[in-house]
């Protein structure tokens, strides 16, 4: 006999066909959920707007009556051209150059160390390493990326300077090395950006089609030739983008450079002296608990705004490079 005949509880009498939309809580909930989720998604836009609003009102032009913004008190020319940064002294100078100098010297040292090593590691992982080695190495790099900035700063202060820099440069070469110095900050910064460079570049390298490599080998190339003359040029845009993102991260890095390089704004290229970066100044100024409304307090926003514009510019450039040149191999 048919099973279908035995079924009764499943088929309640069908009271005609009603397809029309009618008010129900389910429908109301559907619309409500959509609205709430849209609200969540627009929160990121709101964050950006809040950042822009904050910088514009605190640094560029104040909207609150009776108060002034930073650039209403200090001219943009002074800010960019003055070679001294001394907001906390009686004779106040607001020249961003020493801070920019510190930032770029340290980020430069970090890049000189981190970019080539990161790229070489990426080439090794994508071209040479066995899958098992790569699976083992990936989590190690993730751990390296996950170590907090404070820890790197401590490492620079108690290990890199006394046990690596001083023996080499001070004892051997006779160059004075301050206890706080740009070099140690640059070294740990280099280590910090290795995971970023490595994983992003590796993605770019692995995206290069295998046929290209095989064509290289078929012409009698060694692995070195194929890696450096075929694969790396093919993945060039991705590698450049990874470099830009890493440098941008190095520029925005705060705690490590603040601990290792000290808080002495100095317009110099000597990496063995103490220097102050933009980020370190912001941390330092907040430690002194500067009261709101003073010019030192406002200078925080001016420096923050400069930093924001620089990193934003580099990120946009990185994304542009990535998108502009991506279609070549697809």
């Amino acid at each position: 006999m048919s099973l279908a005949n035995a079924v009764s509880p499943l088929t309640p009498p069908k009271t005609g066909l009603r397809l029309q939309k009618q008010f129900s809580w389910a429908r109301a909930r559907e619309a409500g959920v959509r609205a709430v989720l849209l609200g969540c998604a627009s929160l990121s836009l709101l964050t950006t707007l809040a950042i822009v609003y904050m910088f514009l009102t605190e640094a560029v032009y104040s909207v609150t009556p009776g108060t002034t913004a930073f650039f209403q008190e200090v001219s943009l020319w002074n800010f960019l051209a003055d070679t001294e940064w001394s907001p906390q002294f009686a004779d106040k100078h607001f020249g961003i150059l020493p801070l920019l100098c510190g930032t770029f010297v340290i980020a430069g040292i970090g890049s000189l160390i981190g970019l080539p090593i990161g790229l070489a590691a990426a080439i090794y992982l994508s071209e040479y390493a066995k899958p098992k080695f790569r699976r083992m190495m990936k989590p190690v790099l993730e751990v390296l990326a996950g170590i907090p900035s404070v820890v790197y700063g401590y490492f620079a202060l108690v290990f890199v300077t006394p046990y690596a820099l001083r023996p080499i440069f001070q004892s051997l070469l006779g160059i004075d090395v301050d206890i706080f110095n740009a070099m140690s900050a640059g070294v740990v910064l280099g280590v910090m950006i290795i995971p970023t460079v490595c994983s992003l570049s590796e993605d770019a390298l692995r995206a290069v089609p295998r046929g290209l490599r095989e064509a290289g080998y078929a012409l009698g190339s060694t692995k070195y030739d194929v890696s450096l003359k075929v694969v790396v040029p093919a993945a060039f845009s991705g590698i450049v983008a990874s470099f830009l993102l890493a440098i941008s991260r190095a520029i925005g890095e705060t705690m490590a450079v603040c601990i290792a390089a000290g808080q002495m704004p100095r317009l110099s290229l000597n990496p063995f002296r103490s220097m102050e970066t933009m980020t370190a100044y912001m941390v330092g100024a907040s430690l002194g608990d500067t009261p709101a409304g003073t010019i030192e307090y406002k200078s925080l926003y001016a420096v923050g705004f400069t930093l924001f514009l620089i990193t934003l510019g580099m990120n946009i450039l990185a994304n542009w490079v990535m998108n502009r040149f991506r279609e070549v191999y697809e």
Partner: peptide, 29 residues
Amino acid sequence: IQVNLSNLAGVPSIVYALLGMTAFVKMFG
């Protein structure tokens, strides 16, 4: 939103700190 997200991901933490100080600690005054 997507472009904005990728840019926000690259904003240094110290800028978020400034935002937190302004928006939450002082609530824009």
